[in-house]
Design a protein around this nucleic acid. Structure first.
Lengths: 223, 223
DNA sequence: AATCGTCGGATTGTCGAACAATCTTCAGCA
DNA sequence: TGCTGAAGATTGTTCGACAATCCGACGATT
């Protein structure tokens, strides 16, 4: 039998009701079931989900903390509405984070580099299946998250996750991505190839271009 | 008389009780009145502050979202305990953010550059007064915040603020800063001078050194 | 007609009490 | 010593209530 200390790496934290509600709301947001600007009434959500108002309230606080919704005092919480200014700021922020990551490709931990390859592989595989918009966006953003992971800082990854949430919100109603799925995969594969070849400067330039393109297409999709 | 639409830039949001509680708890944390690891009991805080438990609970959620405290299910929230690993991660993260800022010095908005100068001036002035540890740390971190502000991204500044919170937590009980206040000011002034002279590469190197020094001294102060 | 005051409904912010589930402590016992 | 189990403490969640605030409508005034 193993020593007890061998299990010290195991852990589980019981999923609380607030977490479930927050997760369900996030899913609804990312699936485009809730239009940006939609007010999230506490009582309506409460008896729609069969929980108390306090619990809903706490879950809403979680969404607000992540920037997915905004709360104005005495008026309540509403789904964040991504405007061009937000898109621009998000793009500038993720450019900083992701470029910092890819520039550390050579010095990064091997596991972090492998995470990039794995994310790319999953992305490519998904492209040949019948995927949903939300799943596609998630796989795409997983690659960019892995880029930030190259910095080796979990806090930067957390910041990138918050940015990704706002992007998924903006992309919820857009599935223009489907038609050029293979093209998108090729673009990211090229980027990783440049990294593997040691051409980090070229990779960084390519990434900046890619993110700028993403900004323009996202801004255009806002109608 | 002015047009009615001239008032569109005015706004005010009433400060809610939860905000006051969260602010008070932050102050106590940054002033070192609460040791890291101290459990924050909901009932104790509630009747100590003269508010309901629900309200305290919500305020605690705010602290947890900012990384100043940690919540484990069914056990409650406790003040975060900064260990060397945390310090290292925070340092790596802020290095990315601040270096990205200073490298954009030339392209940054003039107001953002001026914010750096102003923060430095306030820091220098504070050095010649009888300051408290918390105020000193705040003035110091304001400079570094201004560096991130050079990126022009409010989201990166927000991320930097979260990092700054954890730093203030680690620095709460340390006032080794007092003795070499003028030296600290000189170090930051040199950095800004390099920027003004257009030597951004040298400034970035200096900044990296400065942050690395900060990490070692913070880690040493953890005892 | 346009502006202003007021009224009522809806919603949030906060409070208080309650209860089950879980954690912690500690005495008792093998 | 090491395990068991009961008691107390703490959290997670629910319910009900109330004041404060917001919002829209409805008149009243100029």
């Amino acid at each position: 039998m193993l020593d007890v200390s061998s299990f010290s790496h195991l852990s589980l934290d019981p999923e609380t009701t607030v977490d479930k509600i927050a997760a369900e709301l996030r899913r609804a947001l990312f699936d485009g079931e809730l239009e940006p600007g939609t007010p999230l009434r506490e009582v309506a959500l409460a008896d729609s989900l069969g929980v108390a108002r306090s619990t809903v309230r706490e879950a809403l606080g979680s969404l607000v903390a992540d920037g997915l919704a905004v709360r104005v005092a005495n008026k309540g919480v509403a789904v964040s509405t991504p405007d061009p200014g937000v898109i621009h700021d998000v793009t500038r922020a993720r450019t900083v984070l992701e470029v910092a990551g890819v520039r550390r490709w050579a010095e990064a931990a091997e596991t972090d580099r492998q995470a990039v390859r794995d994310a790319l592989a999953a992305y490519a595989e998904l492209a040949s299946t019948d995927f949903t918009t939300a799943a596609w966006n998630q796989a795409h953003l997983a690659i960019h998250r892995a880029f930030v992971g190259l910095t080796g800082s979990e806090r930067l990854v957390a910041a990138a996750d918050a940015l990704a949430g706002e992007i998924r919100l903006a992309l919820a109603k857009v599935d223009r991505t489907r038609r050029n799925a293979t093209e998108q995969v090729a673009s990211h594969a090229l980027l990783v190839d440049l990294l593997e070849a040691g051409r980090t400067d070229d990779a960084a330039d390519e990434l900046v271009r890619h993110l700028a393109d993403g900004e323009t297409s996202m801004a255009a999709a806002l109608t």
